[in-house]
C-alpha cells in the first residue's frame, strides 16, 4: 500500500498516476482540515477513453469518485465502505473549493 499527500487547492493537485495496465484501489482517504474555512474535497481521476466501437478517437475524461466536505478544525477519515469499491484508471489527484495550505489530504492506495 502506498500513500500520497497534497493540500487543498482549487486546481487539481496530483497524487499518483495509475500504470497503464493496472487499476488503482483506494484503501483510505484522510482529510485534516486545520484551515480557517470548510473545504469540499473531491478525488479526481483523469484518464483517456480508448478508441472503441462507439468512440472513433481517444477522449479525455475526468471522474470524481469521492467527495467530502470537512468543516474547519475537523480531521476526517472516510470509512472503508466509502472507498473500497473505488477504482481509478488514470492520473489521480485532489481538487477542493478553497486554496488552503492547512487542509491536508492523504490518500492510501494500491495497484491491481
Amino acid at each position: 500500500m502506498a500513500t500520497a499527500r497534497c493540500t487543498a487547492n482549487v486546481a487539481v493537485q496530483a497524487l499518483f498516476a495509475v500504470p497503464l495496465h493496472m487499476k488503482a484501489k483506494i484503501d483510505a482517504i484522510n482529510i485534516d482540515n486545520q484551515g480557517v474555512a470548510a473545504a469540499t474535497v473531491q478525488l479526481e481521476d483523469d484518464f483517456t477513453q480508448d478508441v472503441s466501437n462507439l468512440v472513433g478517437a481517444p477522449v479525455a475524461r475526468s471522474a470524481f469518485p469521492f467527495q467530502a466536505t470537512v468543516p474547519a478544525g475537523i480531521s476526517f477519515s472516510a470509512d472503508e465502505l466509502s472507498v473500497k469499491e473505488i477504482e481509478c484508471l488514470g492520473n489521480v489527484g485532489a481538487i477542493a473549493n478553497v486554496v488552503q495550505a492547512g487542509t491536508v489530504i492523504i490518500v492510501e492506495y494500491h495497484f491491481e
Binding site: 495496465h21 493496472m22 487499476k23 481521476d45 484518464f47 477513453q49 475524461r61 475526468s62 471522474a63 470524481f64 469518485p65 473505488i86 477504482e87 481509478c88 484508471l89
Partner: peptide
C-alpha cells in the same frame, strides 16, 4: 469501474 460525466467507464486488461 468509475463514472465520468454520468457515464460508466472501465478498464479491461488482458495479458
Amino acid at each position: 469501474d468509475t463514472m465520468a460525466a454520468g457515464v460508466l467507464y472501465g478498464k479491461c486488461t488482458i495479458i
